[in-house]
Design a protein around this nucleic acid. Structure first.
Lengths: 340, 340
DNA sequence: ATGAAAGCGCTAACAT
DNA sequence: ATGTTAGCGCTTTCAT
């Protein structure tokens, strides 16, 4: 344990300050000296104490990542992307999983980030005024993915545009009765993504109804909680309606999976009886032949990582949000409606 | 920023030492004093500097979690479980994602854990002698899930037993020609779990062959890389065999999903033409009506978290590995073979 | 029960 | 280019 800086200094025959400089690659150290220091450090198996270094510099070499649910495909993918680029830069990642509103409250009450991180990454979580202030009060760069916050850099996709494209695909196939599976207020943790997709759904579906000169079916908007079972239930509700949609747009692939199951159980065929369109391009979407909107999840994470690194070095320059491209992936779950 | 301990001390009218004691709940502080200190700290919005505290005590309030792939269902689930119990105890989680052999090598070369963590958790990764020594040299408790290492506490399941149970289920249904989709050496990152399941497969399948007085089909053992597409390919290989298995045991649900797809594409029905049995009880197994071996993944994580906490307080007492229960979940993908 | 003082191991001026 | 000297903000003897 007592592998202190001074031991290295003694072995290399220089002062502690020089060792510190040499080890950090700071300019102003003769080549020969640096080599000797490095050799001595290696021989002693020496590594600086992050705590001491952090106390002296104020930097921690760590970024905090705040995530709603680590174990959801989308988030774990992003984390993986972020971690990759951060670790290449020698930065460690402190993970905070919120889980639910209670967890979120506890997190902001205890606020374990104070002085622990050099920067913070927030995933898909719209911040309250107070939370944002608290985060910003750390004096550390803040970056978000999936949301935009004043004072933070962000990466995301054009949720609205992508959802509109998805809906239009359904309309172009000839569907006029389109159901939606997503989230109906109140949305857990205050997510806004579901709302943006719902807005896009309405925009397109209502326009279709207007053309046809009839009122939109209010019952076509269902909540699936972004889970498979929730999607299954929602589809069940849709199927129970007097006028049944010929197509369904689910705001996540997981809910779409649930919808597929409900359909299968009801003895209905996809896409013959009902078309289903998802969102995400989940790993298993191909398996289930689900047509969906693909978003570059890993890239979102990597980009966020790069943003973090940039802010960490060149101070905090706020840029406009980076918008990554999505694309419609057509598989076997969408087709023109059958005339009945 | 300059919310130092001394400010609180001044406001409370006591010394810094007393503030430190009061804040940590150390005994030996008068009730009234403690109350005043707490009030002062609250008023100032004070929180201790982890770096300073860590430098003084040697403790970091952090545990390092080493995981092969964060974005695989199984691992993200475990992480979620660990995080939950750790954060309740006020411990933060430093995440290290290995990814592949190169990442693993880099990790152990740089070894970013030194002095950063109070304990280490390793998921499913069999350690080399050197790696284990390196980890143990941290002088911090080590716990593992899914593997056993000398000097470490561990949680896991009875992989072999569970796989044997799974295989026997197939045999009891009447299957004599059973294929395996798993991993064939060399296994990425040196995982041993696939090997244990393979061994169980052989044990049962070979016994069946012996009874029937014939040699086991060597071609029945295929590698699916623990991914959907790998499982799909493996099933394709199996289907190309002269003598085709009537049932398949996949060492993970994801590979089983791939097998289901290959079967569907080949125009074969499950379980009518081929039975498929998975392992894990993945979130989507129910969706696909996959029979499988359920293992309590979240609980594995929570148990690991508790083990970590225990070691952190009562010093390191090594216990025998905790084995959590698995159970066979029968859904629609397994049935007696059809006589052809 | 409380305070004074000496570090914990490093980095950052300031000298030289 | 290198060394000296102060801290960074806390915890922990040791006194009182």
């Amino acid at each position: 344990m007592p592998d202190k800086l001074d031991d290295v200094a003694r072995l290399a025959g220089v002062s502690a300050a020089t060792v510190s400089r040499a080890l950090r690659g700071v300019r102003g150290v003769a080549e020969g000296t640096r080599a000797r220091v490095l050799a001595a450090a290696a021989e002693l198996g020496y590594a600086v104490s992050p705590a001491a270094s952090s106390l002296a510099t104020g930097r921690t070499g760590t970024v905090g990542v705040i995530v709603p649910y680590v174990d959801r495909w989308y988030f774990s993918r992003i984390i993986s992307g972020v971690e990759r680029v951060l670790r290449e830069a020698g930065i460690s990642l402190l993970l905070y999983n919120l889980g639910d509103d209670a967890g979120r409250a506890r997190f902001f009450a205890e606020f374990p980030l104070r002085r622990r991180v050099d920067a913070v990454l927030v995933l898909s979580l719209p911040l309250s005024e107070a939370e944002r202030a608290q985060l910003l009060s750390l004096g550390a760069p803040l970056v978000t993915v999936g949301t935009e916050e004043p004072g933070a850099d962000s990466v995301g996709i054009d949720d609205h545009g992508a959802a509109v494209t998805a809906m239009r695909h359904l309309v172009q196939l000839g569907h006029r009765e389109i159901g939606f599976i997503g989230e109906t207020a109140p949305v857990p943790l205050g997510f806004t993504t579901p709302l943006r997709r719902l807005a896009a759904y309405r925009e397109v579906y209502h326009a279709v109804c207007r053309e046809d000169g009839r009122a939109p079916e209010a019952g076509f908007e269902t909540g699936g909680g972004f889970t498979v079972s929730g999607g299954e239930q929602a589809m069940g509700t849709l199927l129970g309606l007097p006028r049944r949609p010929s197509a369904v747009f689910a705001a996540s692939d997981e809910m779409a999976f649930g919808a597929l199951r409900a359909l299968r159980r009801a003895g209905l065929r996809v896409p013959h009886d009902v078309s289903v369109l998802g969102f995400d391009d989940h790993d298993l979407a191909g398996l289930l032949e689900l047509s969906t909107v693909a978003q570059p999840v890993a890239e979102l994470g990597e980009h966020a990582g790069r943003l973090l690194l940039a802010r960490l070095s060149d101070g905090k320059i706020l840029t406009s949000p980076a918008i990554l491209r999505t694309r419609l992936v057509l598989r076997g779950s969408t087709a023109p409606p059958t005339t009945r």
